[in-house]
Amino acid sequence: MHYTLRQLEVFLAAAHTENITRAAELLSMSQSAASSALKDLEQQFSIQLFDRVGKRLQLNELGRALRPQAESLLEQAIALEQGFRQHDKIGELKVGATLTIGNYVAVDITARFMSQYPSARVNLHVANTARISQQVLNFDLDVGLIEGELQHPDLNVSRWREDELQIFCSPSHPLAKRDKLSQKDLLAAEWILRESGSGTRQAFDRAMYDLLPDLDIRLELQHTEAIKRAVETGLGIGCLSRVSLQSAFDSGRLIPLRAPGRDFRRYFYFILHRQKYLSEGILRWLDMCREY
């Protein structure tokens, strides 16, 4: 074999940080040792994996093509080492979740997972669908849990569980006593919604497609709790996942509204890179999500 696992580590760290000095720090190496490892790897095969732009290293076409294979090979090597040391030990797991899932579902799953597997360390990152998918593509995350529909040739997207959005308002809002909302009500209302690029907004836009150009969207916010608070103070009506609203409905702080004929059903999804090595930790995490 004409390359070493250390050389692959340097290659992947440089791809992640786009800087050899930061890559060396990430691997607890000297800058010269990291630079030499990358140079030896390229010279061994007479290739160039990066375009050098000043101090920045940017993956070229060959580097981008080889990165998934290097990621998979290195992860299998790490899993093999863990197997030699302790066959049932689960190490670090990097999970990404969109806001609704991250704030109202994934935290519970993480607690159960770490309780069942004490050796596990779960790093949970919460962002919108676009950001989570990009991090999975870059191998910055092992698995993503998203709300939005997504298609990408390098991603394996599979349904996890069903969810439903719910229109809601404050108890003092004029629409609070309506049995159901008419099209006229929907158009007259001031809306407080999630930002474009989020899975929740995607599902809302699909359900309201025929009215979208004429809706009065007063605010677009990135955080579910901020939307709930704005609606609670009477700034307008909102539409979020029922998962995030149930406690507010139970306490009477917010009121659910019906809009017959509007389909607010959607799904939560798992996303993984197609060339991602499915370690024991990832497989057990997915199983626990399905059981939740």
Score class of each variant (00 low, 15 high):
224 T>Y: 03
5 L>H: 15
89 K>W: 05
116 Q>K: 15
174 P>K: 10
228 K>G: 10
227 I>R: 10
251 S>T: 11
14 A>I: 01
78 I>C: 07
214 D>M: 13
35 S>T: 08
41 L>P: 07
16 H>T: 11
210 D>P: 04
47 I>E: 07
186 L>G: 14
111 A>Y: 08
184 K>A: 15
109 I>W: 02
42 E>C: 10
171 P>Q: 14
155 L>F: 07
117 Y>C: 00
197 G>F: 02
71 E>R: 08
216 D>Y: 09
202 Q>W: 02
283 L>W: 06
287 D>Q: 15
79 A>Q: 15
202 Q>S: 07
262 R>L: 13
1 M>Y: 05
140 D>R: 15
157 V>K: 12
209 Y>M: 07
268 F>Q: 11
97 A>P: 00
175 L>M: 10
281 G>I: 10
241 S>N: 14
169 C>G: 00
269 Y>Q: 05
39 K>T: 10
56 R>D: 08
274 R>N: 13
273 H>A: 09
286 L>I: 08
250 D>G: 03
229 R>V: 02
233 T>G: 01
180 K>S: 14
276 K>E: 06
31 Q>I: 07
253 R>P: 00
275 Q>Y: 08
65 A>Q: 11
174 P>F: 07
16 H>S: 12
241 S>V: 00
239 C>D: 07
227 I>C: 07
12 L>T: 03
55 K>E: 09
90 I>L: 15
159 R>W: 04
71 E>A: 07
27 L>Y: 05
161 R>M: 11
28 S>G: 12
186 L>M: 14
198 S>C: 06
171 P>G: 15
96 G>T: 06
249 F>S: 07
85 R>Y: 11
219 L>E: 15
3 Y>C: 10
7 Q>A: 10
276 K>G: 02
174 P>C: 10
182 S>W: 04
284 R>C: 08
93 L>H: 11
278 L>K: 12
50 F>R: 02
58 Q>Y: 07
158 S>R: 13
11 F>M: 08
148 G>P: 08
119 S>A: 13
10 V>I: 13
166 Q>L: 03
79 A>S: 15
21 T>M: 04
24 A>T: 08
59 L>I: 03
284 R>V: 05
241 S>H: 09
39 K>F: 09
235 L>V: 08
44 Q>H: 12
236 G>V: 03
40 D>P: 03
287 D>V: 12
131 R>T: 12
206 R>A: 12
234 G>K: 05
30 S>H: 14
179 D>C: 09
241 S>Y: 01
147 E>M: 06
251 S>I: 02
77 A>C: 04
145 L>P: 01
122 V>Q: 12
89 K>V: 11
290 R>T: 14
49 L>I: 03
246 Q>S: 10
146 I>S: 02
